[in-house]
């Protein structure tokens, strides 16, 4: 069995590809072969020993569906891949739209529908939550720098300025808001989300929905150390029934079909969990889940293959992950090969 996985960019803003691969390998039953799908020749996953058998460059999501399809069709001729697990937000729309065509090539995936992707889109989340009685910070959408002048009408500074796909900055005044707006919009486009800033502790949940409304598993984590980019560099599994129940409610009402990360903040004022974000894929810390007793990536693979999976009912509290940097070494010839051939 061959499984292709994207997001091998295990950098300081890591993609979930490497931890998803480690999770699959964590399962004693797993005996598949891993193929890496990469966007850049310097993605660290390429250089890790025994991580993937082979890696192929695929076109950036921004270059269009036709190009992606042609590249995948070419790769499929060489590899006969059984399952693709896309792990990055920005590529999901493309893979969802190609789902049927890839199925004809014999490739299975386990993805949310286009509509589901739209519900969790950061600009729609607010309405979804209010409709379902889930607390959510207030937010407005802005499409131009001029709109930022309206911020004081809606909330007090500081506010959070966020991109539709990635990036978020906490800003204290109009000038900072403008800078953040320009930074984010030049990279990720419009609109930009301006969100109420809530004080409190951050909690994250990794979960897997089977598409019928059932939550296969959900593991909650509190970040112990946060980098200056806002990424968790260490975390610990915790259990609060309230947190898991809200996550299950989200999955049930969307009938979510895939991995998911839910980001919450527990307001120090009200003590309530506010849903900040739904990410439509596993997070980069997903390998914590199998280590705490719920191998959600392996369960996703089983679902993709059309197999039945058991619902997880518990996990170990107090399991810790600590991320580390680890330098890898190779010769220029490796870079040459991947640069000129597009595969290695």
């Amino acid at each position: 069995m061959k499984i292709a996985i994207t997001g091998l960019n295990a950098t300081d803003n890591p993609g979930p590809g490497v931890p998803v691969i480690r999770s699959l390998r964590h399962s004693k039953e797993f005996d598949g072969e891993i193929i890496g799908f990469i966007y850049d020749v310097l993605e660290p996953g390429i250089y890790m020993e025994n991580l993937t058998r082979k890696n192929y460059l695929i076109p950036y999501p921004s270059s269009g569906l036709e190009n992606l399809y042609e590249r995948l069709a070419y790769i499929q001729q060489q590899e006969k891949i059984d399952v693709i697990i896309p792990t990055l937000d920005s590529e999901l729309f493309g893979f969802v739209k190609l789902e049927d065509k890839l199925k004809e090539l014999g490739i299975k995936m386990f993805l949310p529908s286009f509509e589901q992707l739209n519900i969790r889109a950061k600009d729609k989340l607010f309405d979804f939550c209010t409709d379902n009685n889930i607390y959510v910070p207030k937010n407005i959408l802005v499409s131009s720098v001029l709109d930022l002048h309206k911020i004081p009408e809606e909330f007090d500074y500081p506010v959070v300025v966020k991109g539709i796909f990635y990036d978020a900055y906490i800003v204290n005044n109009l000038e900072e808001a403008k800078t953040a707006f320009l930074k984010i919009s030049s990279k990720w486009g419009l609109p930009i989300i301006v969100q109420e800033f809530l004080k409190g502790d951050e909690f994250n949940v990794v979960a897997l929905g089977d598409g019928t409304g059932m939550t296969v598993g959900a593991v909650a984590m509190r970040k112990l150390y946060i980098t200056d980019k806002g990424k968790g560099w260490a975390g610990i599994t915790i259990f609060d029934n309230n947190l898991i129940e809200i996550s299950k409610k989200v999955i049930e009402s969307i009938k979510w079909r895939s991995g998911m990360e839910l980001e919450f903040i527990k307001s120090s004022e009200t003590g309530q969990y506010y849903l900040l974000e739904i990410n439509p894929r596993f997070p980069a810390w997903v390998y914590l889940a199998p280590n705490a007793g719920q191998n959600l990536p392996y369960a996703l693979l089983q679902l993709a293959l059309g197999k039945k999976v058991e619902q997880f009912d518990k996990y170990n509290v107090g399991t810790i992950f600590v991320r580390s940097s680890w330098d890898l070494f190779t010769d220029i010839s490796v870079l040459e090969k991947i640069t000129t051939k597009g595969e290695i």
């Binding site: 999501p61 921004s62 269009g64 569906l65 920005s90 729309f93 493309g94 509509e115 419009l190």
Partner: peptide, 18 residues
């Protein structure tokens, strides 16, 4: 695809059916 839009329209624009 609009200027300032990262993903190509064919991926993010809802279909006529939707």
């Amino acid at each position: 695809t609009l200027l300032g839009q990262y993903l190509p329209a064919e991926e993010v624009v809802p279909s006529m059916d939707q």
